[in-house]
Amino acid sequence: MSEQTPPTTSIFAVRTTAGQEKNVATLIAARAERNRLPIKAVLAPEVLKGYVFVEAEGPHFVEETIAGIRHVRSRVPGIVSFSEVERYMVVKPLIEEFDVDDVVEVISGPFKGMRAKITRSDITKGEVVLELLEATFTLPITVHADYVRIVQKAKKEKRNFGKESD
């Protein structure tokens, strides 16, 4: 009996100059507030360059709000589905995506730019233990999961079709 009511608002994407997403979001919110426009929320995910999402009851409200705002390029026609935006809102910890034997690149700290293989991951601390591939001897280092970027996922299981190479 108790059916969920469909949302009355929709999410619209607005194209912006790359790197100005936060400024545009702030300007959109300020204008909506000043002109009492029914904008519900503005979202500027760091990972998505050149776009901000605006939640409103209709596209005309978004058009009215973004008109003339600096660094706004255009509104993307159509509605963005909620599931597409949801992944930017609920950020999954990076550590959960790492597996042992994944090849990663260190993106910060003294080992920046070096490639390494994950030997262990500590989910509670959010750290991974790496083995640098470029080092001449085995050097285990512990790095925070935010400071590594995945390069190649480990193969789940080896399939031995035919001959096994040595």
């Binding site: 959109i28 029914p38 904008i39 929320a41 503005v42 979202l43 995910p45 760091e46 809102m89």
Partner: peptide, 8 residues
């Protein structure tokens, strides 16, 4: 990182 401005 990221920014969400909630107005309502």
């Amino acid at each position: 990182s990221g920014l969400a401005i909630v107005m309502d």
